[in-house]
Design a protein around this nucleic acid. Structure first.
Length: 329
DNA sequence: AAGTCGGTCAACCGCCTCCCG
DNA sequence: ACGGGAGGCGGTTGACCGACT
């Protein structure tokens, strides 16, 4: 007993759409101010097509907001960056490129970008560089920083998308006035990929942050500061409190925006964060784990052909932040 | 000129997720 | 809570076309 077909194929036309069929479909959708039920649309519109075929034709070709023409360099770079983070999630990638469809992006990837990466010695599956023995090399410090550059780029795109969709979003963290870009991005589609991203290849011992997340404790402070150093560029103290061991610092993100973080100073390797929630109403459990996961995101994407090396920023900043634990406000 | 090959892209297939009754 | 239907999604196919031999 096989799967029931999406629709009765008997008497239905297949293959390329004719201009007449296109016109019928467009007229029907325009006249009815929407497609309604795709399954019943062909019958109502007088098309001998299955509903899925109509939906595909509309979303991939006939939609008025479809952007035609070749992809720009910027679009291609963005697709590569997003693919590095999202993988083959074409719909999610397409959501970051207005007017482009998932099918179009998928085709571009399979016919151009994938081959280009291979030619440049980059594994298109995991975006790691091929080594001489054919395998892919593991993370280096420069890869780590480049990954964060990717993240920053994706953040910008997600912000743009969030602003477009802000009228439909009720999450307080997505409020336009919220200055915490990490949290805003975290709740975007791109952040979703990070929340779900497995800590593959990292054992608890070499992944102190994720371990701390599950146990409610901070992990190795040096590890945390090293990671945060990769994504933040320079800082200035705006407030300090010796009694509470908390210091507030303003960091410049890669794009130059101010990001305020709390620094938990401590001489011990592990610090309980039980008081965090009381000290900041904005930082709930989900945002804590979000930051943990962000910091714990495996560094395995090399975008060397797109980004400049930012090693200097990373090393200098992480050195400054020794013996401190950082939480976003 | 004819055949072959490779690239492109629209369209299809089937699985998955979500929503609604 | 559960099941079925509808839509969404990613992988794959195949027709078409141009370049090359």
């Amino acid at each position: 007993m096989g799967r029931t077909p999406c629709c009765d194929k008997k008497g239905l036309k297949r293959g390329p759409w004719t201009p007449d069929e296109d016109e019928i479909l467009v007229n029907y959708i325009n006249k009815n101010k929407g497609h309604g039920s795709w399954r019943t649309l062909p019958h109502h519109a007088g098309l001998l097509r299955c509903g899925k075929s109509c939906r595909l034709r509309w979303t991939n070709y006939l939609r008025p907001d479809i952007k035609r023409g070749p992809f720009t360099d910027e679009e291609e770079k963005l697709i590569i960056q997003l693919h590095g983070m999202l993988g083959n999630r074409w719909a999610a990638i397409a959501s970051q490129l207005p007017g482009r469809t998932d099918n179009e992006i998928k085709n571009l990837w399979n016919t151009h970008l994938r081959k280009r990466l291979i030619r440049m010695g980059v594994n298109p599956q995991n975006h790691e560089p091929f080594t001489s023995d054919g395998s892919t090399s593991k993370a280096s410090a420069s890869i780590a920083t480049r990954h964060m550059a990717q993240w920053e780029s994706a953040r910008l795109e997600a912000e743009a998308r969030l602003s477009r969709e802000s009228s439909n979003v009720s999450t307080p963290l997505l409020d336009k006035s919220d200055s915490d870009y990490f949290l805003r991005l975290w709740y975007s589609e791109v952040g979703e990929s990070f929340r779900k991203f497995p800590t593959a290849g990292k054992t608890p011992s070499d992944s102190p942050i994720s371990e701390a997340s599950s146990s409610g404790k901070c992990g190795s402070i040096s590890a945390v500061t090293t990671e945060i150093g990769h994504c933040l560029m320079g800082s200035s103290t705006i407030a300090g409190n010796q009694d509470e061991d908390i210091e507030y610092k303003v960091f410049k993100s890669i794009t130059g925006e101010d990001m305020v973080y709390r620094i938990y100073k401590s001489n011990t390797e592990n610090v309980t964060r039980g008081s965090d929630s009381s000290s900041s109403n904005k930082l709930d459990d989900s945002s804590e784990s979000a930051m943990d996961l962000l910091l714990d995101y495996p560094i395995n994407n090399d975008m060397s052909f797109l980004e400049d090396d930012m090693n200097d920023y990373a090393t200098s900043t992480s050195a400054k932040l020794e013996n401190a634990f950082i939480c976003p406000l």
